[in-house]
Design a binder for these strands. Structure first.
Lengths: 155, 155
DNA sequence: AAGATTTGTTAATCTACATTAAGAATTTTG
DNA sequence: CAAAATTCTTAATGTAGATTAACAAATCTT
């Protein structure tokens, strides 16, 4: 369990790598993302201060997700193999986060998914490019742009 | 931790209920599903023999998911509050399942999501109505019907 | 077995979002 | 600061999947 400091843009975990790391974000912002067969990135999750980020906790399986820093960040790095550090409480919390993400993805319209995102990450809108938010929502940046225009009109 | 036996159709957990239950499926088939504001059901997960099914493990929060039996089933019912029974190993496994579900939902086409479903639950296709599979995939039964027709044509 | 109900198919039409493209705004870099 | 690169917006057109509807097939009920 040691503290590390990373610059924006640094890749902390590559897809396919056999990783045994879990990161606790002390400050800054990370993201995990899935790269599909066509090379397209789909943002799986953002991790601002206080969040955990990791692949699925199996050290003997190749990672599905890639993780990098969207801002200069300070992290606590823990080895997954030290099961003792993975307390049940934190795992349960993570399950809740994933469950909400699934319910969010299942909710019909992109506009609603955007609202859901705003609730989950109230302070991230200003910090990352819209195209990343679009990727998280599963839509194109153009579509997000249109959604935002409509939201403005309604006000 | 006690064994219970339920008939097809029995609802084991209602949306909004404060539940502290986790079910291990010994035989049969359960499903968890999310009910949206318009009353539409979205199947979150199927749980055949060997799987766990539960809401997000917080006994002090109302359930987001409803759980019922799709077949006569035999279950082990565990109280979530007895943290000791929720071993880290099982939680980690559950996280992996949820992560795969998210990646599946993010993968572009409905046809691919169907393939993904067939891999995850090879023996469920014959056991549940197509409209439930469609719900799990996030599409209409009509759309699934069309996907299956195209798959047949290609063979 | 006959009727009733639920489920599955097909086809026509509609719509949310994708794609393409071109220009405007913002950020990065030398 | 100016030039280059990236990001954002808008609009035109295309498409996967939704909706509607009518019928066929399977399942449940008595």
């Amino acid at each position: 369990m040691k503290q590390i400091s990373v610059k924006k843009g640094v890749i902390l975990q590559y897809k396919g790598e056999f990783s045994d790391k879990v990161f606790f974000v002390e400050s800054g912002l990370l993201r995990s993302y899935y790269i599909d067969e066509r090379g397209k990135e789909h943002i799986f999750m953002f991790a601002p201060k206080g969040w955990i980020i990791a692949d699925s906790f199996y050290p003997d399986q190749p990672c599905q997700l890639q993780i990098d820093a969207l801002e200069d960040s300070i992290l606590l790095k823990v080895k997954k193999t030290s099961t003792s550090d993975l307390d049940v409480h934190r795992l349960v919390k993570r399950i809740a986060v994933l469950q909400n993400r699934i319910i969010m993805l299942m909710s019909d319209s992109a506009a609603k998914r955007y609202d859901h995102f705003l609730e989950t990450y109230p302070d991230i809108v200003q910090r990352v490019p819209q195209k990343m938010i679009a990727s998280y929502l599963g839509i194109t940046p153009e579509a997000l742009s249109t959604i935002k225009r409509y939201k403005k009109l309604k006000r």
